[in-house]
Simulated scan of single mutants.
Amino acid sequence: MTETKLPGDQFVQSLARGLAVIRAFDADHISMTLSEVSKRTGLTRATARRFLHTLVDLGYVRTDGRVFELTALVLQLGYSYLAGQSLPQLVQPLLEELSEELHESTSASILDGDDIVYIARIHTRRIMTVGITVGTRFPAYATSMGRVLLAGLPADQLDEYLARAELKPLTPRTISDPGRLRTELDKVRGQGWALVDQELENGLRSVAVPILQPDGTVVAALNMSMQASLADGTDLDQAVFEALPKLQAVSAKITDALRAQH
């Protein structure tokens, strides 16, 4: 059993609750009523109402009196972090070149807790039912980028992840057994890349490679996604064979750029 870490005496519960309200909004919950926010956060209606109206007064949330939505001001919370990072700026132009060459959508992400978070994205065609932008999150276990990021974790951190993660079968193909996932991550670590075939969403296939720091540690991941119907027109192994060297070449360029900064 994983030990629950209790907040220390420096923990500000009201701040944590306010952030929980902001995080309750996502691609599937763009607009919510007070009751829906209360249910998703576990807060009472009265508490949720206070936080929502505080966020309205601060400009982070808008309301028509019945439903609530985030405003563009919340982007400042994320961009203040991204602005201090060199990685998105390094990745973006290389993704543009890669996407133009492959004629497919390409992305880069980092691991944040049990999720991947997109830090760069070049969109060529709509594949998923959910739109993907910078800041979009997906569960790491069911994504190609998540698997190369998980495979790059130190052994103790991977053990902790497998002990706590809730592995839901998102599609009939999803690996949702911790033992099978560990075996797959061992394979990914050994070969240096990951292929996920319709495990996050039916019809979506993607291949990913790690982005390495100069010291060899995994700092991010890079992927190319394609529709399963498109890959069916060609042999899947052939599609991966053609994309993989290009992904690896871009990853190497990013590592070289990171090395030049040190």
Rank of each mutant, 00 (worst) to 15 (best):
I30Y: 03
A20S: 15
T255I: 05
L90D: 00
R23I: 02
A72K: 09
D57L: 13
P214N: 07
G84D: 12
S14M: 02
A155P: 01
T143S: 13
Q238W: 10
V37N: 01
G42R: 05
G203K: 12
V148N: 01
L55A: 13
Y79S: 12
T143I: 05
L236K: 05
L200I: 07
P214S: 07
I116M: 09
W193T: 00
F51N: 03
V117T: 14
Q191T: 11
F25S: 03
A243N: 05
V218Y: 04
H103A: 15
F25E: 00
Q89E: 11
A165E: 14
S86F: 04
K253S: 14
Q227T: 11
E104H: 14
F11V: 06
I211Q: 01
R40W: 02
G42A: 08
L55W: 11
Q198T: 09
Y79C: 00
D186G: 03
V12S: 06
D156T: 09
G42S: 07
L195S: 02
Y60D: 05
D197V: 11
I22P: 01
P169D: 10
T44L: 07
L111M: 09
S107Y: 14
L236P: 10
L181N: 06
E97I: 04
I116H: 02
G65D: 00
P7N: 05
L204E: 01
L247I: 04
T2M: 11
E69D: 07
L158Y: 02
A231S: 14
M226E: 09
E69V: 10
T133W: 09
L204F: 15
L200Y: 13
P139E: 12
G18M: 14
R182H: 13
V117R: 15
S107I: 03
Q213F: 10
Q76M: 09
P88H: 06
Y141R: 03
S229Y: 08
L70Y: 10
L102C: 09
T41Q: 04
Q238H: 12
W193I: 01
T174E: 01
S229E: 13
A120S: 15
L98H: 04
E36L: 09
G146I: 12
H53E: 15
R173D: 10
G78D: 11
M145A: 07
Y118G: 01
G131H: 14
E104L: 15
L70S: 08
S144M: 10
K39V: 13
V218H: 02
A228L: 09
A83I: 03
T174S: 15
E3N: 08
T129D: 11
L153G: 02
S31Y: 05
Y81A: 10
L94P: 00
A46C: 00
D112L: 15
A194M: 08
D26V: 07
R126N: 06
T171I: 05
G179R: 04
G42C: 08
P93T: 07
R180N: 12
G8Y: 03
G65C: 09
I122H: 08
D235V: 08
V209D: 00
V130Q: 15
D9H: 14
V240Q: 06
R173W: 11
L75Y: 12
G152V: 13
R23C: 10
L185H: 10
H123C: 05
V74Y: 07
L111Q: 06
A260K: 10
P172T: 11
S99C: 04
T106I: 03
L73T: 08
L230A: 09
R259D: 12
D156W: 04
F68S: 01
T4G: 02
G152K: 10
R126L: 06
T183W: 06
